[in-house]
Design a protein around this nucleic acid. Structure first.
Lengths: 223, 223
DNA sequence: GTCGGAAATAATGTATGCATTAATGTGTAC
DNA sequence: GTACACATTAATGCATACATTATTTCCGAC
């Protein structure tokens, strides 16, 4: 049957389903049966069910009794909620990271991510820019050292990713955004917690407003 | 408005396990087998496993392959992490609630909770005080209208509850804390988002420092 | 006597079958 | 013709059986 059983089937189902949602193979608002997904992934219903429950907790799907596992569309209102949260959480991460100080590896990685954003901006390579931006934010939260904070922000990453990708070409050139990252990095290196918090809070609020405005203006309510 | 009134075995297992952790029938640091819990609750392993995975996601237990489901002790460091998060999340809730304005029912309920805190303080009834305090915070977050914010804070409620109960008799009389609530309520009624945020942020920071200091001073690392 | 390896045991992870339940379609009655 | 009810069908939720794997114990060799 399944010859590829080295990683656990539960993790396989989770990753497969998440990936399928992310790349659009499972369409927003559409519903899928447990059996259907199980066949498709190559595992039984149990791990699929497990994964569905987990994805439901993460807000990506809704399991509706007898009506299938529905991929939840991300609305402008959802992104507004998420950005409100991230505008509280990430500045906290920035503050904590500045208080603790960055270790060598993190410092290098964040500097590198910032430079990648700057060069991508010059070359107008928006996809590379977004990737570097994602990496920067992930590193920042990691650097806070607060495991629960890391976990909480990770939960929203895929949804933010969907929205960001959809709006990448509509948004203005991320000049200011890139400068914000450089400014935050300076605060981190100078061990200035209050500055880091303030800079990143402003950054997040601006990003959130820009994104939700874009989404509602373009009626992107089904990401 | 938790509609988890299903007679389903899954919900039953979840509630039973959470309750057993909360009231100490399942002891911190101890491990329990899936079969054991299933027999004890009166369902099969499947819903127990489901509940265990959910509780692991909530940080209450850790499922360790072949070593059972371990009830995680809450350490001073854990409470520090949680209070850092809540110090970011709840002030946001206060701000959003003040921006939106409270509906009649919420306004009444929060006013009532505040009054209960005040009378409980006069009568030195710490348990009632803590209950009213919990209710106030829950109402505040609900009033933010941000579903993800509500969900995120709910996740830490049981752990905070454990720590608060353990330290209830050690802490100084919550005079200042009660006054803070009254001040926050005024900000909410006056529709003062910035004030609400600031007042509640200060409140949360103070509460967090007090609690973690108490926990580490009394070496309460196994709640 | 101690260390290493192999086998047995026990607990998890997965699959499957069964029963419950909700949804839909058809038939009959008004 | 429409509405309501009953029956059929199909999908989930749960339980149980099975397979996988890790841990521990025992035996043998050095």
């Amino acid at each position: 049957m399944t010859e590829d059983n080295h990683p656990s089937a539960g993790a396989k189902a989770y990753r497969a389903m998440k990936e399928m949602i992310l790349d659009g193979r499972l369409k927003p608002s559409a519903s899928y049966l447990e059996t259907e997904l199980a066949d498709w992934i190559g595992v039984s219903r149990t791990p699929v069910r497990e994964a569905a429950l987990r994805l439901e907790r993460e807000g990506l799907v809704k399991v509706r009794p007898r009506r299938g596992i529905q991929v939840l569309p991300v609305s402008a209102e959802d992104m507004n909620e998420i950005y409100q949260l991230l505008s509280a959480l990430e500045p906290l991460a920035a503050q904590l990271a500045a208080e603790k100080g960055l270790d060598e590896a993190t410092m290098a990685a964040m500097t590198e991510a910032t430079e990648r954003m700057e060069t991508a901006l010059e070359e107008n390579d928006l996809v590379s820019w977004a990737e570097a931006d994602d990496a920067f934010h992930a590193l920042l939260v990691e650097a806070s050292g607060n495991a629960r904070l890391i976990e909480a922000t990770a939960r929203y990453r895929t949804q933010v990713h969907r929205a960001r990708m959809a709006t990448l070409t509509m948004r203005p050139t991320p000049q200011k955004s890139t400068e914000d990252h450089r400014a935050l990095l300076d605060c981190l290196l100078n061990r200035d917690p209050e500055g880091a918090r303030a800079v990143h809070y402003a950054h997040r609020c601006a990003a959130g407003e820009m994104l939700t405005e874009l989404l509602s203006r373009h009626h992107l309510d089904n990401l």
